[in-house]
Amino acid sequence: MIRKLAFFSLLLALFVVVLGAYVRLSDAGLGCPDWPGCYGHLSPHHAKEKILAAHAADTDGPVSMPKAWKEMVHRYLASFLGLLILIVAWLSLRRWRREGVTAAAPLLLVGIVIFQGMLGMWTVTLLLKPAIVTLHLLGGLAVLGTLTWIWMRESGVARHAAGFSLSLLARGALLLLVLQIALGGWVSTNYAALACPDFPTCQNSWLPGMDFENAFHVFRELGRTAEGEILPAAAMTAIHWAHRVGAIIVGAYLLMFAWRLMRYEELRGLALGLAFAVLLQISLGISNVVFSLPLAIAVAHNAVAALLVMLLVGINFRLRGVRAGAHMERIWNERLAA
């Protein structure tokens, strides 16, 4: 039962993450400007009059019936996902008491979900602050990654006795991917995706004028500096340019790591999947710039990022690495024997 629930929760989490990206990219994040309901009601249908009045007052604003439904459907599904995760944790605790099987991962997941719910509330009540929205994105991916780990463990997926260096490469790959996704989230939440409208150069220059100080100041309002001034274009350029450079570094590392995995027959499927996903992700990122951020391509870019997280969590699970201490002890013993 835990395995089946974990698998269904994993599929739902993937859908919720992609739907969240669609809500954000279609400018529907404030479709219902309060939380958890919509103008104090359970659904946009019950708040129809207030939504229509807000839309009439500002037809280009964030509130409309379609945007409200997008936002609320995302909340409904996220709430249902949270309920499923609570059930998985409860069943895991029962098994722990009965059989002694650890329930650490499900309990950790419950903590992540609670924090993620708070971030979802703050995303609305704090009016889309970039730091909160980016953390909300990363929280969704943390849920997805943890569910991937739980499902693989419950499914009895075989683990490969990897050396310490390969396990270290796998952990480095996951860490770099998370950092690059955080950069991508920062681009999206600051609306900097088209700050460099050309490719491969940026504003017809390999090194355009940039303002890194304001670009990566965390505690500020959307579109504002820490002092409350309008965020300069050079800061938006710095955000976009940093994400491009990160894509080169992380993409090269992941492709190198996939090539290293190809040496092991039992890991070749994962290696090929990783290489394909990396190349697809790079292509989607370039397409976002070349075609001026079409909604479908932008959402697909987020979806492939989520799939990459699942792949790398799966690879880390498969690589039952040797602990650093045990690795050094083995090397020392081999030297003594020699």
Rank of each mutant, 00 (worst) to 15 (best):
F199Q: 11
Y264W: 08
C32L: 09
D27K: 13
A161Q: 13
L179C: 14
L91T: 08
L280M: 14
R95W: 08
L336A: 13
V278S: 09
V218W: 15
R24D: 13
G321F: 04
V73Q: 04
L19Q: 05
L284G: 06
L147M: 13
P106Q: 14
H136C: 02
T225D: 14
A170T: 06
A326Q: 13
L175W: 07
K70R: 15
A298W: 00
A337K: 14
L207F: 15
T134E: 08
L137Q: 09
G100L: 02
L77D: 01
A131E: 12
P232R: 05
A275K: 13
I248H: 09
H45N: 13
I85K: 00
A78P: 00
L295Y: 03
I114N: 02
L319Q: 01
L119R: 09
V133R: 04
G156E: 07
K70L: 15
L175Q: 01
W35G: 07
K129V: 04
L141P: 10
G61D: 07
V63R: 00
L176W: 06
I150K: 09
L169M: 15
T189A: 15
V289F: 05
A215Y: 04
L135V: 03
A104P: 00
H243S: 11
F15G: 12
G184I: 02
G82T: 07
L319N: 09
P44M: 01
L135K: 02
A277E: 06
C32M: 03
L174Q: 11
M152A: 14
N316Y: 03
F317H: 15
R75G: 07
G269V: 08
R98S: 14
W186L: 06
E266G: 05
M210I: 04
F115K: 05
I51H: 01
S155W: 06
D60S: 13
E265H: 01
E71T: 00
G82S: 02
